[in-house]
Design a protein around this nucleic acid. Structure first.
Lengths: 196, 196
DNA sequence: CGACGGATAGTGCATTATGCAGCATGACGG
DNA sequence: CCGTCATGCTGCATAATGCACTATCCGTCG
């Protein structure tokens, strides 16, 4: 690994590459990185703000980014810029196979164990899931509208955003169906939870 | 919180409730819990095997489960059983609102940053995502067929499993569309990444 | 002009979760 | 009786989260 020859034993995680990808677009302060991660990356790579702050420092340690301090009055801010070896590392990573996508949903767990509580809670969980999906779709629509901020990136940008909204649309559709299925359960009509 | 009055300051996490939910079905050894988590919970609540082992002990500390040692020859195994207060805690949790579902996909990050590498890598990432989605759908079909192991649970079981397979189906469908969109990008035909 | 809220720019600490290696026994087939 | 796979765990280092906390800068409203 040429691009990290001078580094002792620091290892890059997926988070490293996610932040590095943002740095490939332009230099940012950690605050901006955290905001951007929350705006866009979060949809397919949710990470805590805290992790982004730590990650920027790690990138510097890896030699993949440089930090330069600037000041606004008496307040300093640190701007991170990708290095040449950072770009090399990013390109290498982009060529490696990815781990399979995963869904994480507290609501789904609750539905899985719903027979331990009343149908009214099952119904509430399904309804909340429906609202959350609609919410996500709204936010994604706004985000897509604002994607013109980087017009040169639009073509690949829309691919990921479309993936995410398709997933949330699937959840919304499922919730519609599930609400009906719960009604059937409720009226005691067994075994008719088939979809037509 | 009546159900944890005797406990000092141990807090339950989502993982606690996920494992507790399994215990509500029947007693298990930690090994079995880990297997079951990997089989079913993983689809909407991915957790490392290690976490499950640690969680069982925490449930005992919370007073939500009891452990009893049994032995097979000279090898001991610990069976965990839910307690009354465990059931109460689970029911209370099932009635609380859930955090919104989240997708995590390394492939999606790579696609988001795909303009930093060649189209061939973008294509490969999309194709892998397609395979992974098909794979997931296969496994889920097998799982659904085996769901008859707990016939009394089937009705709510199918709801969660259907959610998960709908999501993976959405990814598979997206991948089909995206593959076409990448071809269009490749032939240099700009801006025609609309879906009809 | 001055108070106040919101955006900017972070740090520190405790706890949770992951990844991986390691270890020992039991069950079963050839 | 040997090998291999399933069972049944533990330990350790590192990654990631959650939350509280600090401080400055900027604009607006009274």
């Amino acid at each position: 690994m040429l691009y990290c020859q001078e580094v002792a034993d620091i290892k890059a995680t997926q988070t490293s590459y996610a932040v590095l990808g943002l740095l490939a677009l332009k230099p940012w302060t950690t605050y901006e990185l955290a905001r951007q991660s929350e705006r866009s990356l979060r949809w397919f790579f949710p990470r805590a703000e805290r992790a982004v702050y730590l990650e920027a420092k790690r990138l510097v340690a890896l030699g993949w980014a440089q930090s330069t301090k600037t000041a606004t009055g008496r307040r300093t801010s640190t701007v991170y810029t990708i290095t040449r070896s950072g770009r090399t590392a990013l390109r290498a990573w982009l060529a490696t196979p990815s781990a399979p996508p995963q869904l994480e949903s507290e609501g789904a767990i609750k539905i899985f164990f719903a027979d331990q509580a009343g149908t009214e809670h099952l119904r509430a969980t399904v309804e909340l899931l429906a609202e959350q999906a609609d919410d996500a779709l709204d936010q994604l629509a706004t985000l897509a509208a604002g994607a013109f901020a980087f017009p040169e990136r639009m073509r690949t940008n829309v691919l990921s955003l479309r993936l995410v909204s398709d997933v949330h649309q699937a959840i919304a559709d499922w919730a519609d169906w599930a609400a009906g299925a719960v009604d059937v359960l409720d009226t005691g009509d067994d075994g008719a939870v088939e979809r037509q």
